[in-house]
Design a binder for these strands. Structure first.
Ligand SMILES: Nc1ccn([C@H]2C[C@H](O)[C@@H](COP(=O)(O)OP(=O)(O)OP(=O)(O)O)O2)c(=O)n1
Ligand SMILES: [Mg+2]
Ligand SMILES: [Mg+2]
Length: 813
DNA sequence: ATCCTCCCCTAC
DNA sequence: TAAGGTAGGGGAGGAT
């Protein structure tokens, strides 16, 4: 909170390296009641603080001064603070490059400000950090190297690797994965039939990445350590924005957590020691851990590389296992089977890997998982029947699995902080606030209710790749951008393996700022723009996941987004609607219909899938499964025929369709004259959206949360076109900026059902009606339509068909 | 009641 | 300096 009013009404942005450093300037300004902007914002910054002006920046600085923004040296801030009064800016103007100053600065900060590449029209330091060799434009092996170094990619892809890990485990045991799966299924059924009391173990390694480092280098034990790419001994470590992946329990006492930035962590714990990643060691540790689990039961569910659920219902520990518990000086006669099993597992893991694991024990997965928190570090804890509510009563609601930052904030707003308080909230209230399913889930979770099964393997429904770090290109490097996209397609196809996908979603981040973000090569504040389409090849009438087809599709989607290469900060490619050679349905279809295709791949091939729950539509007989399959196949072929006729058109493919055309709503991208020509209601909606967005993008720095906005619909009179404002939120992650989604969808709704062959005519008709409807508004409408690139592409295609008359009519008008 | 699209949330 | 990914579940608002 401000301690004085010295800087009231002042907005400060610090550019480049300064003395004193920007952190101090920021503190002074904030303490004096002023505002500090990490990013330069023309409309809010009143004072642009900079030490000196290299030639490359001169033009930019001139423009600032012309716009009435004061460009001052840091001493303006320090002097004003000292005198508790704003100093006149005159005495603090910044000279052009000052040699003496430059030198002085060099002494203080040997690695002085990097040379600007100055490729932007404004002459700002757009690519100030592109001389490291690490960015996408400099590193020829950027995509592969990025994935090799990303710990989030490593943990995010673990489950996909688990199937082959399982195959190795099966091989070692002289069996096969499918045999293990049917054994698991038999066990489950046996327990159900005999109504045995369920007992679940949740095993989780203690500070896994950190423990691996300590095991390898025992001299680290006793010290506070953190795993990250940065180094605590580096000269600028206190400013490091390297993200911490795992911290040991000594470091945690000082408040260090996963996700924290190294600089912040060092501030809290100056003696913190950093260690580098060792992904192959984590993988090996994970494998060793799972080997041990399968000694006990085939009912194992991998949660992550360091964590699993074991369904140990009805399992009696062997004499060896009892001995282990006994050796730990426990009175085994006092221990339940599940506790002995937990001792055994933990003992064996520690013995084999030198890394400690903790175990929670409960009558369902939820209770076991919550128990693990109490067990850590290096312990075990059993939730006794009926004890759950008492155990969590005083804990924060965010201790409950599934309740994260957003839900906690919403509950806090309702004055609900503890699990006890949560239990006092009515089910109807929770459903009102969070929706039918989530509301019920929250209601159940705070009571320890959960009947989900321990699932050995799940078939994936989607696969994707994303890179939102290090993405930097120059204005003339569009070819490099497209090359990066191709390389990412290559990677996503490797991960897809034998599967194929029917839908593709392409996402890009576009920088909203003119300067580099605070995190080195980070994405900073961005708009998130996405486009989706079908992987259907015209003429072939079926999906294709050939490299060439997908690469082309992505590049077309990329071009339709129209981001200047120098503004690009991230790329994502996501494939969904997955099917596999041995499965008749897409994975999501099967899941939606309650089919248990996890039981066995072989059974699925035979169409002999027999498990279902919850839904009336559920299938319990092979015969009914066939009905579901044939219905879905009918729908699919209908869909395929309409998309086949219209591959670049609407993304929705089923008959009687919904079409969403998405256009970006960047303030700059909106043509004022077009806006002026729109009907008042529509104009207001757009204006509201744009100003809302601007408000969002400026509220960085502290933790802010804008609750999700409800969608606002707007129907164009006389037309069939509706303009829909999509819901949006902004929250800031832990010490991170967060980008926001920013699309307006123009939704074209057709009247009633129509048959697939009439699709084009119908759409043309509707579109022409709409055009007539807004025709009186002047030519502005055409520019709007032009922004809807996908419509005009589609119209152009139709010029070459028998519908050309209509199409030409629309284009002409 | 169910499906679709886009988006948000959660966990590691 | 630094590697801010990945996948699933589900809600809103719409169509059928
Ligand atoms: N935000 C996160 C969370 C986790 N991880 C990685 C590092 C962790 O070591 C590993 C396992 O995650 P856990 O949540 O199990 O965390 P730890 O094992 O580190 O600690 P704990 O003892 O709380 O389980 O995943 C990460 O890189 N970033
Ligand atoms: Mg762990
Ligand atoms: Mg874990």
């Amino acid at each position: 909170f401000p301690q004085s009013t010295t800087f009231e009404g002042v907005g400060v942005h610090v550019d480049g390296r300064t003395v004193p450093p920007r952190e101090e300037i920021r503190a002074m300004v904030l303490a004096g009641g002023g505002r500090y902007y990490n990013y330069f914002e023309r409309s809010r910054v009143t004072h642009f603080v900079v030490e000196n002006i290299p030639g490359a920046k001169l033009q930019f600085i001139r423009a600032l001064e012309n716009a009435g923004i004061h460009v001052v040296r840091p001493s303006w801030v320090t002097e004003s603070e000292k005198q508790r009064k704003l100093r006149p800016v005159e005495g603090f103007r910044v000279d052009r490059v000052l040699d003496t100053k430059q030198k002085k600065l060099d002494v203080i900060a040997p690695k002085s400000v990097p040379v600007a590449t100055n490729n932007s029209s404004l002459g700002v330091n757009r690519n100030i950090s592109t001389n490291s060799g690490l960015s996408s434009r400099e590193n020829p092996n950027f995509v592969r190297e990025y994935f090799q170094q990303s710990r989030l990619s490593f943990i995010g892809t673990f489950k996909a690797r688990f199937e082959s890990i399982l195959a190795r485990i099966a091989e070692n045991k002289g069996t096969s994965v499918s045999a293990m799966m049917s054994t698991a299924e038999q066990r489950r059924r046996f327990c159900e039939e005999h109504k045995l009391q369920r007992w679940i173990l949740h095993v989780d390694m203690d500070c896994m990445f950190a423990s691996v480092a300590v095991a390898k280098n025992p001299s680290l034990s006793g010290k506070p350590i953190a795993v990250c790419h940065g180094t605590s001994s580096a000269p600028n470590a206190a400013r490091s924005r390297s993200e911490i992946s795992s911290a040991n329990y000594i470091a945690r006492e000082a408040g260090i957590k996963a996700g924290m930035l190294l600089g912040t962590a060092i501030e809290r714990c100056p003696s913190l020691v950093t260690v580098q990643y060792d992904f192959s060691a984590y993988e090996a540790l994970g494998k060793a851990m799972f080997h041990i689990f399968f000694e006990i039961t085939p009912l194992v569910e991998a949660v992550s590389v360091d964590e699993a659920f074991l369904d140990v219902t009805g399992i009696v520990p062997s004499d060896d296992m009892v001995k282990v518990a006994h050796n730990e000086q426990w009175d085994v006669t006092q221990l339940s089977h599940q506790e002995i099993l937990a001792f055994y597992v933990r003992h064996k893991i520690l013995l084999q890997t030198k890394c400690p694991a903790s175990t929670g024990i409960g009558q369902n997965k939820l209770m076991a998982k919550v128990a693990t928190r109490r067990a850590k570090p290096n312990g075990q804890f059993m939730v006794q029947p009926g004890e759950f509510s008492r155990i969590v009563s005083e804990l924060s609601v965010s201790e409950l699995p599934g309740i994260g930052w957003s839900t906690r904030e919403k509950l806090t707003a309702l004055n609900v902080l503890t699990c006890d308080q949560l239990r006092a909230v009515q089910l109807t209230k929770l459903r009102e606030e969070f929706g039918a399913v989530l509301g019920t889930r929250i209601f159940d979770v705070c009571r320890g209710r959960d009947d989900s099964a321990v699932e050995l393997l799940r078939i994936r429904q989607s696969v994707g790749v994303e890179i939102n770090w290090g993405v930097r290109f120059l204005a003339n490097e569009e070819d490099k951008v497209e090359n990066m996209i191709r390389e990412m397609v290559e990677v996503v196809l490797e991960r897809l393996g034998e599967g194929s996908a029917s839908k593709i979603t392409f996402t890009e981040l576009r920088s909203k700022t003119k300067s580099e973000p605070y995190k080195f090569l980070g994405h900073g504040i961005c708009d998130v723009i996405s486009r989706s389409g079908r992987t259907l090849v015209k003429g072939a009438g079926q999906v294709s996941c050939d490299f060439d087809v997908l690469a082309q599709a992505c590049i077309e989607l990329h071009r339709s987004i129209k981001i200047a290469p120098e503004d690009l900060r991230g790329v994502g490619i996501h494939l969904s609607g997955l099917r596999f050679p041995w499965l008749k349905l897409t994975v999501s279809e099967a899941t939606t219909h309650g089919l248990d295709i996890r039981a066995s791949k072989k059974e699925a091939i035979a169409g002999n899938v027999t498990f279902a729950r919850d839904r009336e539509l559920a299938v319990s007989e092979g015969e009914q499964l066939d009905v579901v399959i044939s219905e879905l196949e009918k729908a699919r072929s209908l869909a395929a025929s309409s998309v086949e006729r219209n591959p670049t058109g609407p993304t929705r493919i089923l008959a009687g369709a919904q079409y969403e055309f998405v256009l970006p709503t960047d303030a700059d991208a909106i043509d004022r004259s077009v806006l002026a020509a729109l009907p008042a209601e529509m104009r207001r909606t757009i204006e509201k959206q744009v100003s809302f967005q601007t408000a969002l993008s400026t509220s960085t720095g502290s933790r802010v949360h804008h609750p999700t906005k409800k969608r606002r619909k707007l129907v164009v009179p006389r037309g069939q076109m509706t303009l829909t404002q999509l819901s949006r939120t902004q929250s800031s992650g832990f010490e991170k900026e967060k980008s926001i989604n920013s699309n307006i969808a123009v939704q074209l709704n057709t009247k009633g059902r129509f048959s697939a062959p009439d699709l084009d005519s119908e759409l043309l008709h509707v579109l022409s009606e709409w055009m007539t409807g807004v025709g009186a508004l002047g030519h502005g409408k055409l520019e709007i339509v032009n922004k809807v690139k996908i419509i005009s592409q589609w119209l152009t295609k139709l010029l070459n068909t028998d519908k050309f008359e209509l199409a030409r009519g629309i284009m002409t008008s």
